[in-house]
Simulated assay, not measured.
Amino acid sequence: MTVRVVVADDQELVRAGFALILDVQPDIEVVAEANDGFQAVAAVREHRPDVALLDIRMPGMDGIEAARIVCAETDCKVVMLTTFDLDDYVFDALRAGASGFLLKDVRRDDLVHAVRVVASGDSLLAPSVTRRLVEAFAAGAAPAPLRPGRLDVLTVREREVLRMIAEGLSNAEIAEAMVVSGHTVKTHVSNVLSKLGLRDRVQAVIAAYETGLAVPGTRPHS
């Protein structure tokens, strides 16, 4: 199956470089390029890609606003690209529905991997972004915390799964810790996302920290 991608960046050389790296992959096709948020949204609406790479800083409509529209209107997964590793951008991008967040100095192989991972329905963050995200929660800098009661819709098992997702465990590791099958964990994860109205595991991590279910510095479950 070919992963269809839209690349949006106001810097032509950067945009062309990302597009070239991705388009030469046998399983990836760049269906459109855009130099601002308006063009990016229009391209997504027209081509219905699987993944959109959106630069955060673009003229007219920035990447975060474009991500909000794309995530609200389509099933397209969004990976944000930026030169700056700043907390405000991380929070805004993830709240907009982004499934990934990468810096523009990302290595070629990591860029390709990011597109494949996000297209498959998983999520990713650059290690430095993950660290900053957790540190911000630890410092109480995360904006607009959610009500803990929001998790009341989850079963005890689903809460446990959500906590372990926030601790960084994979489905296989969760299955091992809970002594259940991978299929069972996948079902629990799907239920958590559905009940809380979340797009992916990244938003699940945010929900776990915002509601106090997960605490920065918590060691992985064993």
Rank of each mutant, 00 (worst) to 15 (best):
S190M: 10
V185Y: 13
V156I: 12
L81A: 02
A142T: 15
V153G: 01
S222L: 15
I28P: 12
I165W: 06
T184I: 15
L111S: 12
R48T: 14
M1P: 00
F18R: 01
R4N: 01
V14T: 11
P220Q: 10
R147L: 14
V153M: 04
E12G: 14
F101M: 03
R116L: 00
H113T: 09
D87W: 15
R45Y: 10
Q39M: 04
V134H: 01
V70I: 13
V118H: 08
V215Q: 07
A52K: 10
D105R: 03
T130K: 06
N35F: 12
N35L: 07
R57L: 09
F38I: 07
D92L: 14
A66E: 00
R95A: 08
P216T: 11
T218Q: 15
D55M: 00
F91P: 00
L102P: 09
R131D: 11
D62R: 03
L53Q: 11
D109Q: 14
P127K: 07
R95C: 03
G63I: 06
G60Y: 05
E210Q: 12
H188D: 04
Q11I: 15
A214E: 00
I206T: 06
P145H: 15
A126G: 08
S194Q: 06
V118D: 03
H188W: 13
R199F: 09
A52D: 05
E135P: 11
P148D: 15
P127I: 10
G140C: 15
V3M: 06
C71Y: 13
D88K: 15
L125C: 04
D87G: 09
P145K: 12
N191L: 04
A119E: 02
R199I: 07
D122M: 02
V106C: 07
K195P: 03
L111T: 12
G97K: 08
I69R: 13
I64A: 07
L124T: 07
P220H: 11
H47Y: 12
E210H: 05
R157I: 11
R201C: 01
I56E: 05
F101V: 07
F18E: 00
T130R: 09
V30Y: 05
V79N: 03
G212Q: 08
M58G: 03
Q11K: 00
A214T: 05
A138N: 10
N191R: 12
E46A: 10
Q203M: 11
V90N: 06
H113C: 07
Y209G: 03
L86E: 14
R159P: 06
T82L: 03
R45A: 02
R201D: 05
A207H: 03
R116P: 14
V192I: 07
V192D: 02
T83P: 01
A42V: 05
R57V: 10
E160I: 13
V129Y: 03
E65C: 10
G63C: 09
A177L: 01
L13S: 11
D88M: 09
R68S: 06
Q203Y: 12
E65H: 14
A34D: 06
E29P: 05
D23L: 00
I174T: 06
A177G: 04
A208W: 08
L198Y: 05
C76P: 01
R108L: 00
I174W: 03
A96V: 05
D109A: 11
S222H: 15
E73P: 01
H113I: 04
L133V: 10
G197T: 04
V7T: 02
T155D: 02
D62Q: 02
R48F: 15
